[in-house]
Computed example of a mutant assay.
Amino acid sequence: MRSRVWGGTAAVVIGGLLAAGCGGGGKGAAGQSAGKAASGDYPVSVTDCMGATTTFSEAPKKIVTSNASSLELLLRLGAGDKVIGTGFPPGKGTLPGALDAQAQKVKVLGRSVISKEKLLGSGADLYIDTFAAMGGMGGRGMGDVPTEEEFKAAGIKHIYLKSTACAAQSKSPVTDLSAVEADITSLGAVTGTSVKAKELVAGMKEKVDAVQKTVGGVAESKRPTYFFFDYEAGTKQPTVICNRQVANAVITLAGARNVFADCDGDRKQVGWEDVIAKNPDWIQLGVRNRGSEAANKKAFDEAQKWLETNPATEGLKAVKEGHFLRIGSEQTTIAGVENAETVEQIAKALYPGKAG
């Protein structure tokens, strides 16, 4: 299996922010505090998936991010100058525009998961966790994770991105980006960048609303079926997107039907016979950003060729009709601002002349 540079299945970014329920956009104490912080007021309180509260009396000054996804959000919010280190660093050229240069200046504390000793000794006052290792959820294969007592002793507040950390245990499928937007709003409140957070969320809503005006009314039975081919996870046994993963929301909002939306959870491994039985209308070639247009094209070509030449997949409807979408894995499966842009891209491909 290829290395999951962005945290893969357990992607979490900031966990426990605004939403009162897992994966939701509820109000309540956390939401009210985040609202107060829009005018620069503290304290700000946020919760994790289990309901535990973390309170900030002021904006954090030294932040460590567990991977590139949480780092990117901070850069977009204008709080990048507060980041003193990261794990799973973004490859050169993988972040858009000026964000890339800023990201490359951040100290790398771990090429993968940051070691417990290095994290606790980093001098950080906030750790933004991208790996769901809360309470009874366990470490999920993420190594020797510090306990909450150890974080507290080191003076480090520990928060998560609820839109992804809580998604797998959500009681219902994820079909919109409200939880992602709520997390961005709350992270803005915590870091004192609420004005920028509001701007980012408004931009996301504008894009998604425009798509919904054109494809939102398409009957479920008329929507094309869609398969996210996670090429990075390996080809021997496909890893598919289930209905608690943010990609399910992206696909749904774009007017498509995730062929594995009947799977409760975030991801799971299936057999190629299961994919064949679904016989999707469209296939997204899920490859990770290699840092350059040429390298990305090579990766997409590789994934497409595998599907076209493999006896198990060459007969699929999407393969025979050449219905492939070359859209990056991160912007589809990692909670963030680009989720809305991906909704646009998928809708334009599936509904030419109608969407966009």
Rank of each mutant, 00 (worst) to 15 (best):
L18M: 15
A19E: 11
A20C: 12
G26W: 04
A29V: 04
G31R: 08
A34W: 11
K36A: 10
A37R: 09
A38R: 14
G40W: 14
Y42G: 06
V44G: 09
T55V: 13
T55E: 05
F56Q: 07
K61G: 01
S66Y: 04
E72K: 15
G85Y: 00
P90G: 11
T94P: 04
A98K: 15
A98M: 11
Q102A: 13
K105Q: 12
L109I: 06
G110C: 13
V113C: 02
E117M: 02
D125F: 13
Y127T: 06
A132G: 08
G139L: 10
G139S: 13
M142D: 07
V145N: 07
P146A: 04
E149C: 00
K152R: 15
A153V: 06
G155A: 12
I156P: 02
A165C: 15
Q169S: 06
S172E: 13
T185C: 05
L187P: 00
T191Y: 08
V208L: 08
A210H: 00
T214A: 08
V218K: 14
V218D: 05
R223Q: 05
F228W: 03
Y231R: 05
T235C: 00
Q245M: 15
A249G: 12
A256V: 09
N258T: 03
F260Q: 08
D262P: 00
D262I: 03
G265H: 11
D274V: 05
V275Q: 10
K278S: 06
W282F: 13
L285S: 04
N289H: 09
S292M: 07
A295Y: 00
N296W: 06
A299H: 02
F300A: 03
P311Q: 10
F324H: 09
L325Y: 01
T332M: 15
E341L: 15
E341D: 15
K348I: 10
A349D: 04
K354H: 00
